[in-house]
């Protein structure tokens, strides 16, 4: 039995009468790539915010990296990384400055920062661009860099919110290579995406409809259950029935 790093039980968030996430229950194990899918407004973002310790649930239980979501939000934050398509890095700082800044936030020592940033720059092939402003890099590189920065402090879990939106197909695959590498190192990946082929790259996926989890299994099993050979179809069958949007 693998170590469980995310555990939720009937986790619920209400905004007034509106139930954004409705009693979601699931476990994610160490090193797993866990895909979190759903139409716009299905409650993905709300759920992710609770798991990152950014918003308190209305009811239900959850532990992240062994820490209780209600009481230990500070510890949780030390043990997770976060990256989204919208905000990732400071465009007006250079590549190195960004790495040092985010590493510094997580309390890396100067020696660690130095070796980490060198290793990271070489790994991404950014040697020439290390002193350039992040704003001048192509989108794909920015996304790869910001993923690497999100795991610079070797968190137990990294949350990725639509990390590959608008990125070209080749870079998208390179991005997933990075995800696999991180997963091999034992980092748990919690990722949302609108690309259905990316859903296939996950070990297990969870599809949310109207705040509830409607399906949770490996891509292969889901396709079997829904009697189809494409993830696209699985998603469509589930999400088409959605009553609410955003």
């Amino acid at each position: 039995m693998k170590e469980v790093v995310i555990q939720t039980e009937k986790l619920t968030k209400r905004f007034g009468d509106f139930i954004a996430t409705n009693e979601i229950t699931f476990d994610v194990t160490k090193g797993e790539i866990f895909g979190f899918l759903g139409a716009n407004g299905a409650g993905k973002t709300t759920a992710m915010r609770m798991l990152c310790g950014l918003s308190l649930p209305s009811s239900g239980k959850a532990t992240i990296a062994g820490f209780d979501i209600y009481k230990k939000t500070e510890e949780i934050k030390k043990n997770i990384g976060y990256m989204s398509q919208k905000f990732s890095l400071y465009e007006d700082l250079t590549v190195l400055e960004n790495i040092r800044f985010f590493g510094g936030i997580y309390g890396l020592s100067n020696a660690q920062l130095k070796s980490k940033s060198e290793a990271l720059v070489t790994e991404l092939g950014l040697d020439k661009e290390a002193k350039k402003l992040v704003g001048s890099l192509p989108l794909g590189w920015k996304q790869k860099l910001s993923f690497s920065v999100a795991i610079i402090h070797e968190p137990k879990i990294v949350f990725l919110d639509e990390p590959t939106g608008g990125v070209d197909p080749l870079t998208r695959r390179q991005f997933w290579d990075l995800i696999y590498k991180a997963s091999d190192k034992g980092i748990t990946i919690f990722v949302t995406t609108h690309y259905m082929d990316e859903a296939e790259y996950c070990n297990r996926i969870c599809i949310m409809v109207d705040g509830k989890i409607e399906a949770l299994d490996s891509p292969t099993n889901l396709k079997k259950v829904f009697n189809t050979n494409s993830m696209d179809d699985v998603f469509y069958q589930l999400a088409r029935g959605a009553k609410r949007k955003e």
Partner: peptide, 10 residues
């Protein structure tokens, strides 16, 4: 259709 879920895109 950028940022729109697959159902709405269809």
């Amino acid at each position: 259709t950028t940022g729109v879920d697959p159902v709405s895109r269809k």
